[in-house]
């Protein structure tokens, strides 16, 4: 009887954190295996053109990794992903902070923003083509618009939620100008929201990148569309997975930076 009780304890996680961790890992691995299994079964009962089989997709990935094509394509995409994300985020944060802090800016710039906000970013693609042509700059423009809005709203709300008592204390300690208040109190206290905005934008930017490359700007997205035109669904699926991995890598990287910078939280 005694040994049976112990076994039950162990199975329900009575053994402590190690058991919980093992359980988590097992669940995660199980979920991934189940996902691939369902995909595989689905692929077996349909045709290769509707749902490619896992081994075919794996074959594409292995071949393209070996030939270096994956890295070439990632490099091409990064040429507009990085500038688009950085420029859009930078402008979004700057304008968001301004609108969040100054009532005048809210009434003027904020009003215009409310008009432009409902425009879907992809609706700007015609202008991207006319203004920038089929270039990295055109794709970066679309990515920047997405990044701009996400960062804009996070910055605005971050600035708006600054504890007024902190502003009062700063003034009693000799901070007199608005500019200095923003630099010494408003910005540091909005850093968590700024980070959240940037992290969300970095993820969304991968999503929109595929659409932005539709114009014909080389990169993962364009490669994916070209393959789809030839019904090479295994290639499409393979590069969907590549984008997923890029998303996770970017997210983890920013999250690591976040916990370093926000150690005070």
């Amino acid at each position: 009887m005694a040994s049976e009780t112990n076994t039950t304890d162990y199975l329900t996680g009575g053994g402590g954190f190690d058991t919980d961790d093992a359980r988590t890992v097992a669940l995660q691995a199980g979920a991934l295996v189940a996902f691939v299994a369902v995909w595989w079964v689905g692929a077996l009962v349909t045709s290769q053109n509707i749902l490619p089989r896992p081994p075919a997709v794996a074959q594409v990935l292995v071949a393209d990794l070996a030939s270096g094509q994956v890295f070439t394509l990632v490099g091409q995409s990064l040429r507009h992903y990085v500038p688009g994300l950085l420029v859009g985020s930078g402008l979004g944060m700057a304008v968001g902070v301004l609108v969040g802090w100054s009532q005048t800016a809210d009434n003027t710039v904020g009003t215009v923003a409310q008009f432009l906000r409902p425009v879907p970013p992809l609706a700007w693609i015609p202008f991207a083509v006319i203004w920038f042509g089929l270039t990295d700059a055109g794709a970066a423009f679309i990515i920047a618009i997405v990044a701009f809005w996400i960062n804009y709203y996070n910055a605005e709300s971050g600035v708006g939620s600054v504890d007024p008592a902190l502003l009062e204390v700063a003034q009693s300690l000799g901070t007199t100008t608005d500019r200095r208040l923003v630099r010494k109190v408003v910005l540091p206290s909005a850093v968590p929201e700024l980070f959240t905005g940037f992290r969300t934008a970095a993820g969304q930017a991968w999503m929109v990148m595929v659409a932005a490359e539709l114009l014909g700007v080389p990169g993962i997205g364009k490669h994916l569309w070209d393959a789809a035109n030839f019904l090479q669904m295994d290639v499409v699926m393979a590069y969907m997975l590549v984008i997923g991995v890029l998303f996770l890598l970017t997210d983890r990287l920013i999250k690591a930076g976040q916990s370093r910078v926000l150690a005070w939280r």
């Binding site: 902190l166 009693s172 540091p188 005070w264 939280r265």
Partner: peptide
Amino acid sequence: TGPGPDRGMVFQDDALFPWRT
């Protein structure tokens, strides 16, 4: 005419800057 460094303030809610040591 306004707050200033001639009057130090201490609040019930400590109002420390949380990002500073």
